[in-house]
Design a protein around this nucleic acid. Sequence first.
DNA 1: AAAGGAACTTAGTAGTATCCGA
DNA 2: TCGGATACTACTAAGTTCCTTT
Length: 735
Amino acid sequence: MSGDHSHNEDQIDCGSRVNDSHKHKDKYKEKEHKHKDHKKDKEREKSKYGNSDHKDSSDKKHRDKEKMKHKDGSTDKYKDKHKEKRKEEKMKSLDVKIKKEKENGFASPQHLKSEPEDDFYHSPKQSLKRVRNEDNDSEFQPKKIKTENDKKAKKRKQDEDIKPKKTKNKKGEVTDGKKKAKKEPEEKWKWWEEERYTDGVKWKFLEHKGPVFAPPYDPLPSHVKFYYDGKTMKLSPEAEEVATFFAKMLDHEYTTKDIFRKNFFKDWRKEMTSEEKTKITDLKKCNFSEMSEYFKAQSEARKAMTKEEKLKIKEENERLLQEYGFCIMDNHRERIANFRIEPPGLFRGRGDHPKMGMLKRRIRPEDIIVNCSKDSKHPEPPPGRKWKEVRHDNKVTWLVSWTENIQGSIKYIMLNPSSRIKGEKDWQKYETARRLKKCVDRIRNQYREDWKSKEMRIRQRAVALYFIDKLALRAGNEKEEGETADTVGCCSLRVEHIKLYPENDGQEYVVEFDFLGKDSIRYYNKVPVEKRVFKNLQLFMENKEPDDDLFDRLNTSILNKHLQELMDGLTAKVFRTYNASITLQQQLKELTNAEENIPAKILSYNRANRAVAILCNHQRAPPKTFEKSMQNLQTKIDAKRDQLSDAKRELKSAKADAKVRKDEKSKKTVETKKKAVQRIEEQLMKLEVQATDREENKQIALGTSKLNYLDPRISVAWCKKWGIPVEKIYNKTQP
DNA sequence: AAAGGAACTTAGTAGTATCCGA
DNA sequence: TCGGATACTACTAAGTTCCTTT
């Protein structure tokens, strides 16, 4: 239980949590022992279960959860149907390829597919190429036979293009040539040309105006009533505020969930007067519908506001942004990412979060720690209030922090990604990935050797690393049970998360992964692995219960310590960055066709991006309106088809007519009809492509990988190479 | 050396602004 | 020019990593 909870209000509720977590902690310890003395006994596991119903239920939930978050069933069917259809309609074979990947389980990164057993190591690039070659060469004519050398050469060239200097200047070098010169000299600050701090100092001077607090609670007008057990009841402002949080979410699925309701009700009662507390004992008897209606009406009203009113609000926001949204750090005015304090509300965890529905407390000035330079103008707390603390720590990057009451973790106000401090870090990240590129072969050889090690812990480490490298899995820290949703990463995989098939669909040694990862996003994938890995996995699973750790002799710190020895600065997540970037580069090379026009090239870029998103398993909920808009599109397509056959019929009759009449006029009609047919065909084609694209993107989120994993230098170089404006790829916030 | 805490990156979603085709 | 689709952003949860404390 982390957290110094400085507020006694929470103390109460923490109390019970602490209890809970003691239980968990014990369990936890037991589990830890396991790591040491390996053969863990089931009894222990059993008792672990016995001692907490909490756990029991959450565990069951875990299983059910699968259904919840990923919408396989119905959607997949839908997908397949359409897929079949489209396939017939000779989409580009590329589409088919990508789709095929999807059929095999959403997440399968392409490079996994075609791994021949003899492959020494399928670097992602090689196999990607192989897949491609099989499938689409006929169509796409990749006008190049690329060799590894070639590739390196290109890479080098890019580098030169982009940063003619060396080391520390990023792509900015190119950009500023054309577009500076204007005003706003500050914004063009080329921080990447300056010396970096060493020694952990993050800044020398920092001045800002502090956070913007959430607006105070505005009580409901008296005509908006709350009913308990059918009777109207006036709530105290405190209780009412919390009630409105719930009312605002009434339409949301959350409010139907038991845990959510339970947590909410418990926390709500804490805000009630003793009178209210005695009266209101059952959430089911609460009627929030008038409140809910009221808020809906409010938001309608907001939408219906006149232009002037909207403008006014916009201006006010802008003013606030200018005043609070920037800070001065080392002589530069830099944008702050989140200068508003998180408003109070009900906690919305993702997946099956045991704490969903709990009240997220309002943050007061007295909760806030301010960080700034001694010699700066310190931010003022609101009149009559005080900060919790003002400190001057230039070894950290945050301006403001506070402790949140749900998990007891610390929240920060930090700078925008465009700032020097974030940009440098990002830059470093890609540099590390590049260094990994240089020694990745060595590392791969090493872990392949380690599969044969006599020591269990080394073999486990090696297999885990193989997964991280090959599948771009996350490291997977242990988590405290009962504190968060039950999700895992590589090191925390449990036996129940994988299945082994000595033979499957004509492939040998197939591993099926099925687990919930970060954000409770499902990872599902079937991959053929090397025999040694397979045998090792069998061994790791021997005599274990489904909920035992697969890698019982491994955790993230062991793994990272090892990685650190292999390469300076290497950690598990670097593999994700590296493999994402290398995949992008590879795919761009493969997919880009010199002859194509710009939109087609951009489509290629997006496809490459998509490949990366698939690799990293970046999913999203299909947009709310997806089904509907897909249907719309489908009806449009159908209509177009009808139109087409009509047009064809007309053309036919016109032709017949022309044959008989043989006059100019009828000939002309034939021509026009022909044109019409062509035009309609084109339109139809376009619609269908659009449908495919949308379908493909249905549950893939491109933004994340673009933002966090893809070395912008690759993208920028690609744009330059093909004469594509960088803005087509990045919006102004990015590079 | 493991537990806990702090700091920072990565992630999906909701809500709004903008675009775009009939 | 309207309304739906799409793009963008703000928000904040959920990870990873590294450091400190016990």
